[in-house]
Design a protein around this nucleic acid. Sequence first.
DNA 1: TGTAATTCCTATTAAAACGATAGACTTTAT
DNA 2: ATAAAGTCTATCGTTTTAATAGGAATTACA
Lengths: 135, 135
Amino acid sequence: MLSKKTKYGLKALTFLAKVEGKEPVQIAEIAKHENISQKFLESILLTLRRNGFLGSKKGKGGGYYLIKEPKDIPMTTVMRVLEGPIAMVPCVSLNFYEKCDDCPDEGECSVHKLMLQVRDSALDVYRNNTLADLL
Amino acid sequence: MLSKKTKYGLKALTFLAKVEGKEPVQIAEIAKHENISQKFLESILLTLRRNGFLGSKKGKGGGYYLIKEPKDIPMTTVMRVLEGPIAMVPCVSLNFYEKCDDCPDEGECSVHKLMLQVRDSALDVYRNNTLADLL
DNA sequence: TGTAATTCCTATTAAAACGATAGACTTTAT
DNA sequence: ATAAAGTCTATCGTTTTAATAGGAATTACA
């Protein structure tokens, strides 16, 4: 299941990408337009900013804005920041690899074999989509 | 993340597929060989039986066995039974479709657009793998 | 210079999901 | 009769998720 965090984060990014100009957009406006709990969205936008996707302006008239062109924001990085590993098991993860406690031999593991394919196919999709492609 | 239920279920199916003959294999043997909590595995095998993947024999000398050829067990059905929907959001699920509360228009939703592709790519993998392919 | 609007940050909570465990019951081979 | 197995239901502890609370810091502007 996709977490709501990721879902809301993607929606917020999309919303910001659709906005004309580079004027900061307030959290409240995004939350209202996308039917998201404002406080929850707040924390999501914060992590998006901390991870280099968004800029912000504080105080009156402040808000959030994209700091890159939508076409330069690949879904791989967005998904990794919001959702975490793309792989369904750590033992096939490129960026978050971990060996399984059970499983003496990855080469012999059916789960490994299957999930490797699933990871590759998902990666393929994420690599072929930037934020611009979702508008 | 793939649940341990699914992981263990897949391992158990693989183990049973590798066993010579159609002799029932005891839960304890599978659990030991695959490093799985026996009680937990018990409940997993039960759902696999209830969903038509396994047969069982009770009493002394009993156990579980595959009731189909590995090549006739597609990963789509295994995943749906163990893990649930293949789609990451209900609004792109073929077998478990649900409309989103938020989101007035699926056609306009960026999450929908992306997750549709992810679903299709995952489905592609699962449809091209039977249990036999994982041995 | 004061006030309102806004982001920033930390902590907490409520509910759900997950993984595992317990124990009694039923069935079967010998 | 007994031991070895699966069956079934209930429960429990932990982690994760989604949301909430509240105040601090910053900024625009009258």
